[in-house]
Simulated scan of single mutants.
Amino acid sequence: MSSTIILPSTNLLGKDCLEKALDIIQQQGFTKALIVTDAVLNQIGLVAEVTKQLEDRQISFEIYDGTQPNPTIDNVTQGLESLVNHDCDLIISIGGGSPHDCAKGIALVATNGGHISDYEGINKATEAPFPLIAINTTAGTASEMTMFSVITDEERHIKMAIVDQKVTPLISVNDPNLMLAMPSSLTAATGMDALTHAIEAYVSVAANPITDTVALKAISLISQYLPICVNDGNNLEAREQMAYAQFMAGMAFNNALLGYVHAMAHQLGATYHLPHGVCNAVLLPHVQRFNASTNPEKFADIATAMGRDISGLSPEAASLLAIEAMEELSAKVGIPATLSELGVCANDIDKLSVNTLEDVCCLTNPRQATKQEIAMIFTAAM
């Protein structure tokens, strides 16, 4: 089976790389940017760190900061209006997954026309997107470098997964200086999202030697550095290592895709507006317990990457250690243990299960499930 490796053409990582990114924008002749972000990042002054440097380079800008934590169709529509009305020639997303996903939606519709829901599914766009530079402030979603955009359709109560090479940003920026402001709860949630990306990609049926290599390294780094970042948010070295880890996890799932953890978490996010990373963290061990029998050797690798000693154990026994390590890391960084604690209602499990099986992320899960089996996993996570 052939493999395709998709990435932005330029990826800047490491402390102070923001300046280099803005130099590139200036060199390429862009004159006016639409900044897509959220109100909190604007209020705490993080956006100003970028806009000041734009001003220094005589690049004007307009700010759209209406992005919701689970960006909506309405957010894309409003951002697109702002792009057109202010005659911008570039989009800059600043934030975590939500602003990046919103900006990707705007960029796609700006050049392809129609409505964002027209692009739900895989590779529906025909034109390259509007130029987009994604400046990341969280170590988790990897949306700054992937071909995924998840937009909430509030009327249908679903999250639309848009998987399209054409939503890949031109440039991704991971400067850990911009991640120091992340509160510990967000650090934990986004870090567990990155761990989920790496694990789902590693056990995916579409995995290849490249995705396997970066996924395992990401799992190892996250296991080591996420607790440090949660306990000491100003540890720049740990933040930088998490920035690399989430980027590698993004490389892995952007090319090997995901599985049932994400398919199920998308339904919880659409129904209850819960934080995506928290949903992933709660579901992760339950889904992998379901998957483990398909390839216990791979789960033994995960156990080793998470710091477990598997010497003398069968792959089946080692795979149980991997699942135990997932649960322990989640607890260590303060994630609730059950869906009940998040307010999920048992009466909704049937509908959640039906919608899960319609999610594109199901396709590459290593073990295919019936609706009843998905419902059993939801129930186990309650």
Rank of each mutant, 00 (worst) to 15 (best):
S9R: 07
S9K: 03
T10Y: 12
T10E: 14
N11Q: 13
L12T: 11
L12G: 13
L12R: 02
L13M: 03
K15P: 01
D16W: 03
C17H: 01
L18D: 02
A21I: 01
D23C: 02
Q27F: 02
T31V: 05
Q43I: 06
Q43C: 05
G45T: 04
V47Q: 09
I59L: 07
S60G: 14
T67Y: 09
P69E: 05
T72S: 11
I73R: 00
L80P: 01
E81I: 04
C88F: 12
L90S: 02
S93C: 04
P99I: 04
A103I: 05
A110D: 08
D118H: 12
E120D: 09
A125F: 05
P131V: 03
P131K: 08
T137Y: 03
T146L: 05
M147W: 09
F148K: 04
S149H: 05
H157T: 14
I158D: 04
I158S: 08
M160F: 15
A161G: 04
V163C: 00
D164T: 02
Q165P: 06
S172P: 00
P176Q: 06
L178T: 11
T187I: 01
A188Q: 00
T190A: 10
G191Y: 00
G191L: 03
H197L: 00
H197A: 01
V203G: 05
P209F: 09
I210V: 13
T211G: 00
D212E: 13
A218K: 04
A218Y: 00
S220H: 13
P227T: 07
N231G: 14
G233K: 02
G233V: 08
N234V: 10
R239H: 05
Q246N: 03
M248E: 07
M248L: 10
Y260I: 01
H266P: 10
Q267N: 11
L268P: 01
L268W: 12
G269C: 14
Y272C: 13
H273A: 11
H276R: 07
V282I: 15
A292T: 06
S293N: 10
T294Y: 12
N295I: 07
P296S: 08
P296M: 12
D301E: 07
M306S: 09
R308D: 14
D309A: 09
I310Q: 09
G312E: 12
L320G: 15
I335K: 03
P336Q: 11
G343P: 07
N347A: 14
D348L: 07
I349F: 15
L352Q: 00
L352T: 06
D359Y: 13
C361M: 07
C361T: 02
Q372E: 14
E373H: 05
I374W: 15
A380G: 06
M382S: 01
